[in-house]
Design a protein around this nucleic acid. Structure first.
Length: 202
DNA sequence: TGCCAGGCCCTCTTTAGGGCCTT
């Protein structure tokens, strides 16, 4: 699967917002096998809030390739893999919007690490990505709100959740139907995960 | 002119409202 994160000019592609950076991590057999990242020029200036929030400046975007070029490359990277994102409804909207502009689409399904976290870690202070990284002491380099850094942290969070789900399942603490229900994760994704997990652990 | 995201989930709910998450 591919873990995905967008930085954007705002919250809604339906209000004209565009992607300005994409970061993605490919996971196979529970291990990171490839990464993709790129700044992209949205053809518009970003406001000062976004500059402060992400650290991405208008000067950086001026020299970046256009969204269309980066998204075509990303479409080739993601192929038909299923995807994971933290608050997936946000990233899936931008992915659909940006791919549609270049006549592409992603056939994969989305799972949401935020919804899964709300189910699995009810003792967490909240379910922001940064909070969960600290709560679980997940690997990070101190960078937040940049696409590849956030995708990397989401990857570590997702792998931890899969392990915790599997352990709970093995311990018969949760039945299989609940695994499918957790986080709205598509059944096919859970099935593929279990198959690869068992191949790895015997 | 005035509006301005959207989906999940809880609750003082279902004839609704508001917090949480993402930028």
């Amino acid at each position: 699967m591919v873990v995905l994160d967008f930085e954007t000019t705002g919250l809604s592609p339906h209000s004209g917002d565009r992607a300005i950076e994409i970061g993605a991590v490919r996971i196979e057999q529970g291990r990171i096998t490839d990464r993709f990242t790129g700044l992209m020029n949205p053809g518009m200036r970003i406001n000062s809030f976004i500059e402060r929030y992400t650290g991405i400046t208008n000067a950086m975007l001026r020299d970046a390739p256009p969204c269309e070029q980066v998204m075509r490359q990303f479409a080739d990277f993601v192929e038909d893999y299923d995807m994971v994102a933290h608050n997936a409804s946000f990233d899936s909207r931008f992915l659909t919007s940006e791919l549609r502009r270049v006549g592409r689409e992603s056939p994969g399904e989305f799972a949401c690490s935020m919804l899964a976290s709300r189910r699995l870690y009810q003792d967490a202070p909240n379910h922001k990505l940064g909070t969960l990284v600290r709560f679980h002491q997940l690997p990070n380099d101190g960078t937040f709100h940049r696409a590849l850094a956030d995708a990397d942290m989401t990857t570590h969070l997702w792998l931890k959740m899969l392990t915790d789900i599997e352990e709970a399942y093995q311990l018969e603490q949760i039945p299989f139907f609940l695994m499918q229900e957790i986080s709205h994760t598509p059944k096919a994704m859970i099935d593929r995960f279990l198959k690869s997990w068992r191949a790895k652990h015997g």
